[in-house]
Design a protein around this nucleic acid. Structure first.
Lengths: 129, 129
DNA sequence: AACTGTCAACGACGGACGTCGTAGATGCCC
DNA sequence: GGGCATCTACGACGTCCGTCGTTGACAGTT
């Protein structure tokens, strides 16, 4: 399992919990999901998902205690990058600028976000110089 | 069928062909896919996909002639926006600036692309003013 | 020792997806 | 008109995904 496969929708939702809470038990993940999510997922469903994800290498499991503790195997950044890369290739012909253009066209690109983006761009340019 | 569901991977590959070639027959789509794609998809597979997509409202079918002609129902821009929005919500917490940051961190964000992005940003700012 | 609650593990199931074989209709050509 | 090619339509299959019921192990309580 050199490179784990991309997470599915449900798996990504779980990863988000793990990134936010850090290493957690099934119960904690389940409850956090219940809070955040609109949909109501059963306990054993979350357990099964986490078992699958362990199998795939998406998470690491500490089973030294009776109650296992799960932790994301890859960083949030890394996963975001992989997912965005994939979408960029499949839907945007690999063009980063088109991605940015679409991102800007969304309502959520608020004023603060625009300033943030410009800052990123400056930094990136300075570094590339 | 007010709003068609999001296209799957295989469906998106077909949509890309339709956006590039314009309204096309199954055969044309199939051949174009054979050229572009690494994977080798059978004719009837493409046909079935297009039939499903018609059902879902992703494409429109002109069956006035014996050989049907398919056309993308939604624009490329619109589809890109929907897909990016979805990923942004699921993986980036809805933050456009994080998306942009990840996009910039990729090798494909070349010098020309950076210039292009900056231009987009300027335009966007001017318009927002 | 019996009861109760929590946990991991396993198996099953329905649905979506991608794939293709095959049948049936239609058009073309000698 | 018979034969061949092309096209749509239909049905099936294997796989993955998300879901959950059930079982068995274990721990704490009384």
């Amino acid at each position: 399992m050199p490179v784990p496969p991309q997470p599915t929708r449900a798996e990504l939702a779980i990863l988000r919990v793990l990134w936010q809470l850090g290493p957690s038990t099934v119960r904690r993940v389940h409850e956090s999901l219940r809070d955040t999510q609109d949909k109501d997922t059963g306990y054993t469903t979350v357990l099964k998902l986490l078992q699958n994800m362990t199998e795939k290498g998406l998470v690491q499991r500490d089973e030294s205690e009776r109650t296992h503790v799960y932790e994301a195997a890859l960083s949030q950044k890394r996963t975001q990058r992989d997912l965005l890369r994939d979408l960029m290739d499949r839907a945007f012909g690999g063009s980063a600028s088109t991605v940015v253009a679409q991102a800007l066209s969304m309502k959520r690109a608020s004023a603060e976000e625009l300033a943030e983006i410009r800052k990123l761009l400056d930094e990136h340019e300075r570094r590339g110089k």
